[in-house]
Simulated assay, not measured.
Amino acid sequence: MSWLQAIVLGLVQGLTEFLPISSSGHIRIVSTLFFGNDAGASFTAVIQLGTEVAVLIYFAKDIGNFIGAWFKGLFSKAARASENYRMAWYVIIGSIPISVLGYLFKDEIRSSLRNLWITATMLIVFGLLLGLADQFASHVRDKLQLKDAVGMGLAQAMALIPGVSRSGGTLTAGLFLGLDRAAAARYSFLLALPAVFGAGIFSIPDVLERAEPNAASVPQMIVATIISFAVGYATIAWLLRYVSKHSYSAFVWYRLLLGIVLMGLLSMGLINPT
């Protein structure tokens, strides 16, 4: 991997991780379209650590409250009635599907599911689903319930397929379940922490061994991760302000256009799907 590719993909990761447009899909597309190769699932998983550190810092106070309430709730019945205690459990419960499925299908995630035909299809299908949820769901609740944690957790697991979008899947499920845009986005950010950190840490040995073709060097990986952190932090702040006043329609149209263009390029043989 060249230094230019590492820097560009760090920027792409930071810009797209929290937007409902699929960061892994964009890394896959940009790698192939502009650099002629696939950066690999391990590279993608590790540089996502940068964006999740951004979440940790941005929501540090909330996360500290959740962790404190969870430990207090282990020993105090009164503490279990708090909203922070329930949120901590919702994050844990919502993280189970992607953790289990990510482990069971890790080989497919690193190989066959990275086919660009699949990426293009998922961009379109889940873009349409996001559009339906955004336009027709009720968006009336700002408090999470257990059903939201389960539903959004299952949706997050779908993002193991590039093109689905972890944030897009969870936001779509949250909106269909009746959450307002801001509440769904906030939980989506928090829900990513266990799964993405786990996947990133799990993939570090592969990166160090340079087990994948076109593997990045350790310095390249560090720089790409730092860039994804800085850009990702700014993206969180922007998206939370944006969704409080706007719909997701711009992202829906972007996904549809990108998916159609990608299918056109694949059909004409201009890029290799694998």
Rank of each mutant, 00 (worst) to 15 (best):
T44L: 15
T44S: 15
A45K: 13
A45I: 13
A45Q: 14
V46E: 10
V46F: 05
V46D: 09
I47K: 03
I47F: 13
I47Q: 06
I47S: 07
Q48Y: 12
Q48A: 09
L49Q: 07
L49M: 13
L49W: 04
L49C: 10
L49F: 03
G50T: 06
G50L: 11
T51I: 09
T51E: 04
T51A: 09
T51P: 07
E52R: 01
E52N: 08
E52G: 07
E52V: 08
E52S: 10
E52C: 06
E52M: 05
V53H: 04
V53T: 11
A54S: 06
A54R: 01
A54G: 04
A54Y: 01
A54H: 01
V55A: 09
L56W: 03
L56A: 10
L56R: 06
L56Q: 05
L56Y: 00
Y58G: 09
Y58Q: 10
Y58V: 06
Y58F: 08
Y58K: 00
Y58I: 03
F59H: 09
F59T: 12
F59D: 13
A60D: 13
A60T: 06
A60V: 11
A60P: 04
K61C: 14
K61E: 15
K61D: 15
K61M: 14
K61V: 15
D62L: 11
D62W: 00
I63E: 10
I63G: 05
I63A: 08
I63H: 01
G64I: 00
G64A: 11
G64C: 10
G64E: 13
N65R: 10
I67S: 08
I67W: 09
I67R: 00
I67F: 06
I67L: 05
G68K: 09
G68L: 04
G68Y: 03
G68T: 04
G68C: 07
A69N: 00
A69K: 00
A69W: 01
W70R: 01
W70P: 00
F71R: 00
F71S: 07
F71W: 12
F71I: 02
F71M: 05
F71P: 03
K72T: 01
K72W: 08
K72A: 10
K72V: 00
G73F: 04
G73M: 02
L74M: 10
L74H: 03
L74E: 08
F75W: 14
F75S: 14
S76P: 07
K77H: 13
K77D: 15
K77C: 13
K77G: 14
K77A: 14
K77R: 14
K77V: 13
A78D: 14
A78K: 02
A78I: 01
A78M: 05
